[in-house]
Nucleic acid binder design. Structure first.
Lengths: 355, 355
DNA sequence: GTTTAGCACTCTCGGCCTTAGAGTGCCAAG
DNA sequence: CTTGGCACTCTAAGGCCGAGAGTGCTAAAC
């Protein structure tokens, strides 16, 4: 059962019938995209009530801020607050079909090269299944273990560092050195680091080297000098930067709700603007279970007509990242939520197998 | 001087005045985006001609297929054929300002990790400067030299291969082996390969190994068996896959010409659909200088209202890739062409320095 | 022969009105 | 509390009209 935490505040109690009507209204609106009138709702609700009665209830719901009329004589549309209540209390989320789960599993269990590729694949998958935009933060670990390091001289003062981390993550960076090093020196340094630190967390590596540097100062032999200069620069920045992958943006162009071209453009630009979304995702990192942001709850004004459904994925209790989809507020939550939830679990499982 | 090869056919000669009028009309249309009428053109042309005369000329140009009226009483708009003639024969391309070139150079000369990153950066740059979508094919070389190879055991039958190619391109792939190998065996194999083949083209490596395999058959010692199995799989596929990077797609949402949401969506999907565009770019690989595709000249119906301006970039006569921009047919060719041209040259220079 | 003025014609665009339809709010009766 | 009735409001779509822009054609001028 996903915990769908309310981000916005608390709701005064509504009587059973009123809640039911709100539920039916939201469901209907999600299906049709048209404001729902009293007659329609009377028919859909399955209660023996006349449109007039329904009208009274709807007027109440509007007063309480759950509904909104686009104009005097259109039906009602849920407000953000209405969606919130719907999701928190009214929506029932059917579990995903076994066959569907199987399909997802098969697509996720493809062998891939590294975290980023996996993220891309899963993001693609999410967007394909939900027909919305899929987002996956690339897995990042609090404890990154060094598996292997290699130094290759490129030119005078430039050295290529190849870093193998964790299970199969390979990174490379180029560093500027103060003096030229020979291939032999570099080799020795790498050998030393590998022998000493392979399997250790890179935090530890950094600390150990710092200690060595302080204690021994300039009594270092040439080998250790090389080691220290290399390592200093190599481990300067955190090796696994935060990042995410978006796929299926084009789906957002199809849903009529987001037809305002200019809004859409801003949204797309937000996708490229990394930092905005990252900050949002950080919030989700430590909530467990599915989280949903409706409209501006997410903090950014570009997301006005959008909802974001996210779930963190964890391995052995350690949160590795967040994934989710982004689409119009008027989305089929009853399908999207289980898809996101299951995908997160499957991704976690896939990462677990890899290790 | 860019060679702007005509892809479409040959044009019957038009007299001087007619050509001039076509030129002015296209320029005006590119500026305003409004169909150009006879009165406007009479004023703009700088010839002492009445609108009536202009009308006659425009009627001729329409008959010849260079112009088109949206309806009876709007001005004229260039057809694809009209643009073609304009670009091939009428447009004069001013060289880029020195300061502007300097700005481009500085942005391209940033140090980067590998070809893909560089492509991303240049693509970003192109799109930023032209306010269109930028596309850069990641550099690929006919002769890829092996610089260094490393094997790391991951699990039972999986080995991580780290390949350093050319100047600073690092690739990694995971291969499945028939039997488990120890770290020591793998190390020896890597050492052997590095000793034997570092600096050689991978084509040569592949051939040499094949020869060894045939000649010596099962008289191979254990080391060589390891070497051969590793190398076989490592060099099976070409290490540098074709790929490209697109940036600034959102710019295309701003230009009024492409306001049809559905067309735009298809265009965006084409960007993700790699293979379509790759095939187009392959054509440009061996044409030297700037090439321009107008509308459906590019072969795809999604590109109806678009033009593509491309240029290959080469190092020492070897074509490494293609870059360019894609935007509405109604774009400022006189600016875009030199930008694309210069960027190609600068990228080539940057790659040259790296080697 | 080319250029030009004149003129009738065509087409779009915006504003305005009208109508049909949907839905509401309120009131008074059940 | 529920309901039928009713007046009211608002939108969406269609039709109409006039202004404006631009054309093609013709006949006269150069």
């Amino acid at each position: 059962m996903p915990s769908r935490d309310s981000v916005a505040g608390h709701h005064p109690s509504l009587n059973e019938r009123t809640q039911h009507l709100l539920k039916v209204l939201v469901e209907r609106y999600i299906r049709d995209g048209q404001p729902v009138g009293s007659r329609t709702l009377a028919r859909d609700a399955g209660l023996e009530l006349s449109p007039a009665t329904i009208r009274n209830v709807m007027a109440d719901l509007e007063d309480l801020g759950y509904l909104h009329s686009p104009h005097t004589s259109a039906g009602r549309v849920p407000t953000a607050r209405g969606y919130r209540l719907f999701i928190d209390a009214l929506l029932n989320v059917p579990p995903l079909d076994h066959r569907e789960v199987e399909i997802l599993r098969r697509r996720i269990d493809q062998p891939v090269q590294n975290g980023a590729d996996l993220a891309r694949a899963v993001s693609d998958l999410l967007s394909g299944v939900t027909r919305l935009a899929g987002i996956v933060m690339v897995p990042r670990r609090n404890v990154v273990t060094l598996r292997h390091v290699e130094f290759l001289p490129l030119s005078e003062n430039r050295v290529l560092v190849v870093l193998v981390l964790n299970a199969q993550e390979v990174q490379n960076r180029i560093i500027q050195t103060r003096r030229p090093y020979t291939a032999l020196e570099l080799n020795r340094a790498a050998q030393y680091l590998n022998g000493q630190f392979a399997g250790k967390g890179i935090q530890q590596v950094r600390e150990a080297l710092l200690r060595d540097l302080r204690e021994t100062r300039d009594s270092l032999d040439r080998l250790m000098q090389t080691v220290v200069e290399m390592a200093e620069q190599t481990f300067e920045t955190d090796p696994v930067g935060e990042d995410y992958v978006v796929a299926g943006q084009t789906h957002l162009m199809q849903c009529a709700d987001l037809s305002d071209l200019d809004k859409l453009r801003q949204l797309f630009e937000a996708f490229n603007h990394k930092s905005d979304l990252l900050h949002l995702f950080d919030q989700c990192l430590h909530a467990d279970g599915v989280q949903i942001f409706i409209g501006e709850e997410a903090g950014s004004s570009v997301l006005q007509e959008c909802s974001i459904v996210t779930a963190p994925y964890t391995v052995e209790g350690q949160v590795l990242g967040v994934l989710g989809v982004i689409g119009p507020t008027r989305m089929a939550y009853d399908r999207v939520i289980p898809v996101v939830e299951v995908t997160a679990r499957l991704l976690a499982a896939a990462l677990n197998d890899q290790d």
